[in-house]
Simulated assay, not measured.
Amino acid sequence: MKIIKNLIKIFLLLFVAGFLFIVFANYSIKKESDPFISYAISEIPKVKTAVVLGTNKSLSNGKPNPYFKYRIDAAAELYRSGKIQTIIVSGDNSVKGYNEPEQMKLDLIVNGIPAEKIYEDFAGFRTLDSVVRAKEIFGQNKVIFISQKFHNERAVFLAKNHGIEAFGYNAKDVNKYAGLKTNLREYLAKAKAYLDIWFHVEPKFGGEKILIP
């Protein structure tokens, strides 16, 4: 019985410690990234390249994914404003028939972005991969990330911890009820971002460098 009580105590201590770490990670990342992200184009500096963080164009039920649409809209707005010259679309292409970068590129072209101004990163499996590869593969030391606010917070945090001067242009967010699952998952993702920094986690793939003139 004593062993069981001790195990319960250890479990409760670990649970409380884990909960406090998640709270700390989320508060810290939000606070650190807040000065560098904005919904207003006027507050975004002029930078050569922006990175659109990937997501699927369609939801699992086949309906259009609003996260995807709003990121494409934001990227097109930023390009037309003259704040950026080129765009990296970074996402998952690990499964045959599933190609986030290609989906994003095609929709950006429909929105008037010249194809030659769009560069595809097919190994952006995680936000960490997209961030680090922007520097290591595409040679960009100063970038603007385009995604929803909660996502940009994490991307900017990761970028600054990898020596990248980073900013975030926030795409329109999704209704809080429709995006409830994503927002809850983000709490764990921010905690994982801290662990990735502490344990020096690297992107899944490297590859040849791609020159952006």
Rank of each mutant, 00 (worst) to 15 (best):
I10W: 12
L14N: 12
L14V: 12
V16Q: 00
A17Q: 08
G18R: 07
I22R: 05
I22E: 11
V23F: 11
F24H: 10
A25V: 12
Y27C: 02
F36E: 01
I37R: 07
Y39C: 00
Y39P: 00
I41D: 03
I44W: 03
I44R: 04
I44M: 11
V47M: 02
K48Q: 15
K48N: 13
A50N: 08
V51E: 06
L53C: 04
G54I: 07
G54W: 08
T55Y: 07
N56V: 02
K57P: 00
S58D: 11
L59F: 10
N61H: 12
N61Y: 13
P64Q: 06
N65L: 04
K69D: 11
Y70G: 00
R71Q: 06
R71L: 03
R71W: 05
A76M: 08
A76D: 08
A76E: 09
G82I: 01
I84P: 03
T86C: 05
D92G: 06
S94M: 11
N99I: 05
E102M: 09
Q103H: 13
M104V: 04
V110Q: 13
V110Y: 14
I113R: 06
Y119L: 04
E120G: 00
D121E: 13
F125G: 04
R126V: 03
R126K: 15
T127R: 07
L128A: 02
D129V: 06
V132T: 11
V132L: 10
R133F: 01
Q140V: 05
I144E: 04
F145I: 02
I146H: 03
I146P: 03
S147F: 03
F150R: 04
E153D: 12
E153L: 05
R154Q: 11
V156R: 00
F157N: 01
N161P: 03
H162E: 06
I164Y: 07
G168H: 04
A171V: 08
A171M: 09
K172C: 00
D173P: 01
D173H: 09
Y177V: 10
Y177I: 11
A178C: 00
L180V: 10
K190Q: 14
K190P: 01
A191L: 10
K192E: 08
A193K: 02
Y194G: 02
D196A: 12
D196Y: 15
I197W: 07
I197M: 12
F199D: 04
E202D: 10
P203V: 09
G206C: 04
I210Q: 07
L211K: 15
P213T: 03
